[in-house]
Nucleic acid binder design. Structure first.
Lengths: 343, 343
DNA sequence: CTGAAAGCGCTTACAG
DNA sequence: CTGAAAGCGCTTACAG
């Protein structure tokens, strides 16, 4: 078995006290330069690493953030939403930049959350990520609040604490989608995605979409709306309904790319061409969007920026610093699924 | 500020010693049932959680595993290989099952690895994941070995320690691919993917592919081979080369799905139909595979099983238990990109 | 600039 | 079955 060196070993070898070793290793300015260099050289040589548990215990903080990715239990378990995976990537990188470790955990929305990360001092704060019905976890959010846990979350609003939430300007995103569909010459629109109270992000996208249509003289009443959670199969099923209803539709705005993929699959099965017969617009810009045929036009959410803001805001919270409410600005990505501008 | 309860607070409230509290909370059989229940009730009531840092420090282990996802620096940074993302998901779940926390970190292959997770007692062991050139990190693997770090890795073999590696039976997978391409009536084959020493997994897939072709009387010399790392753009470029060389090819076996997606994109751009003109076969079965048009036939690697084995093996290693060399059995997934069986 | 000492919150041998 | 005590490896006020 290997025996790890401790600060006492180094102290012995350097001929100084253990306190001095600790100070030297933390680059304390009050330790003599030569002493510091000697100590650091020995530490390197012994491949010494500060014991995190001891250090954390003593300092009462962990330099670790926890990421809770929760999934809607109705979702196909094997397929984690690619959008969150991409967020995970950027959060990881953002943590590395700020020298934080990242504890990752997937949770079912229905689970009794293991949100005890902070209580057990494993993490200094928590990042919450996940679609799913907002109402389902509102209660849990408030429990976190009551426990004074430091947390930050994507999408869902925490009543009374807008600063804890980061999200895209979804309404603006919906507007961009609507404008593009209009600019590409479409006339009869539909929306696919849950736009109820339980899905604040989807609702905002819907509202923005309607904003754009209104400007063109189209009212919300003229836009059929089909519910779908953010999965491919939900998009597929919603499209079956739409088609069965014999609506006159030449453009569908989907609340997420995953839904859009499902919509396109259904359309293809029913021998409808995209974009010639029906245009399809997504939201998120997940990797599949560009691989789809035709490539999916969509509204991009900048996950790199989102990850960094999430991490930075959480760190501010932990350090009792103020944070400002901010939003990610969505961006229109034009590919092939909506045809070309006719303006 | 909230003040966290300690085991002393509980001891005081329960009228017992702190040692008894500790024992009761860990369900020690030697503590009186009533005492135990009383203590646990109070702990629940105070929302008490054992301080992980203190507990780990005392026990000299962390119940935490670290996952190092390293990427080839040449790869597009924003697009993490979906196959590894899916592994990440299953590893997370496997960790949860075994009550382990998971620390996640992305590393560039070129970085000075932050593989000091175990040295600093943050994790009891490390899981290594990543494509990229094997030779580049062989040295690093041996450093881990020298430090007696507990680790397990996907794909790449650790010389002298086959038990540390888990991977698919890649050769068998290649064989399945070859057989399917043969069964669907194809005659002129090509392979796209690095099959050099630096890519042991891709090489094995190539070899298995050739095994199958040999049985049908086709020699390796008749199969043109184009290098590509595991990205879409590499697959696209390799296909341009293939087409420029005017090879007579009616089927391409790609070392990964990402490569296959790139190959199909190039084929489409060059107005070649899949599978009518050229069949395309992938490897991995990442989510995009089923979304592609035509849907990609591929060799599936069972990531759920892989994740569990990786975690279980690592835990065995940590506990000084023996582990057996095992392989994931690949599975042929027939979709549309190779046409239909003609046998 | 450096050292001796206290203490973070647990777990566990030891004694009873 | 329970308690008093030691100790895991650090960091940091305190004293010099």
């Amino acid at each position: 078995m290997r025996d790890k060196a401790t600060s006492f070993d180094i102290a012995y070898m350097a001929g100084v006290s253990q306190s001095t070793v600790s100070r030297a290793l933390r680059n304390s300015p009050q330790v003599n330069k030569e002493t510091r260099e000697k100590v650091q050289a020995i530490a390197r040589q012994l491949n010494y690493k500060v014991d995190k548990n001891a250090s954390n215990l003593r300092q009462q903080r962990s330099s670790t953030l926890a990421l809770l990715l929760f999934e809607d239990p109705t979702t196909d378990e094997s397929l984690i939403n690619p959008f969150f995976l991409s967020m995970l990537g950027s959060i990881t990188r953002a943590c590395a930049k700020r020298s934080q470790d990242l504890l990752v955990s997937f949770q079912q929305l229905s689970d009794d959350w293991h949100a005890d990360y902070e209580d057990s001092n494993k993490a200094d704060g928590i990042i919450l990520l996940g679609y799913g019905d907002y109402k389902d976890y509102e209660e849990k959010l408030h429990k976190l609040l009551a426990q004074e846990t430091h947390f930050v979350c994507w999408g869902a609003e925490v009543l009374g604490h807008p600063e804890f939430t980061l999200r895209s300007n979804n309404r603006e995103g919906g507007r961009l989608a609507g404008e593009h569909l209009l600019a590409t010459g479409h006339k009869k629109f539909a929306f696919v995605g849950n736009a109820s109270e339980g899905s604040p992000e989807f609702s905002a996208r819907y509202l923005g979409f309607i904003d754009a249509l209104n400007k063109a003289g189209i009212s919300a009443a003229q836009v059929p709306h089909f519910d779908a959670i953010s999965t491919e199969s939900a998009g597929d099923k919603a499209t079956e309904q739409l088609l069965a209803g014999r609506h006159q539709v030449d453009a569908i705005f989907c609340a997420s790319d995953l839904i859009a993929i499902g919509v396109m699959r259904c359309l293809k099965r029913r021998n409808l061409r995209v974009p010639e017969d029906i245009a399809v617009m997504g939201f998120d810009d997940i990797p599949v969007a560009s691989f789809a045929t035709p490539a999916l036009s969509t509204i991009q959410q900048d996950t790199t920026q989102a990850g960094e803001l999430l991490v930075n805001n959480l760190l501010q919270l932990i350090n009792n610093q103020p944070i400002t409410v901010s939003q990610i600005e969505p961006k229109l990505i034009i590919r092939q699924s909506c045809g070309f501008n006719r303006t």
